[in-house]
């Protein structure tokens, strides 16, 4: 897993380098898309999960 994290970090830096050279500020749209997708997935997962009952809160 840690090898994967390191690989993805380097891959992100590499793709970012290419994107920044070509597109400048537009390259920020890549992390914007990925974060927005994750936000959507996590929001739907949170909404679909069981709601805590009032007595659980106390």
């Amino acid at each position: 897993m840690r090898v994967g994290l390191i690989t993805f970090f380097v891959m992100g830096a590499f793709i970012s380098y290419l994107a920044c050279e070509r597109w400048g500020y537009t390259s920020l749209s890549v992390p914007l898309i990925s974060t927005s997708l994750l936000f959507l997935v996590l929001y739907l997962r949170d909404m679909a999960g069981p709601k805590p009952r009032p007595e659980d809160r106390n």
């Binding site: 897993m1 994967g4 390191i6 993805f8 970012s16 890549v30 990925s34």
Partner: peptide, 27 residues
Amino acid sequence: TFRPSNIVIWMTMAFQGGYLNMVALMS
């Protein structure tokens, strides 16, 4: 937890970490 969907989230965040650091360096 170690589930495939969660591992995708962690890897995407690692990708984004490298990506944003390079954006700062290039800009």
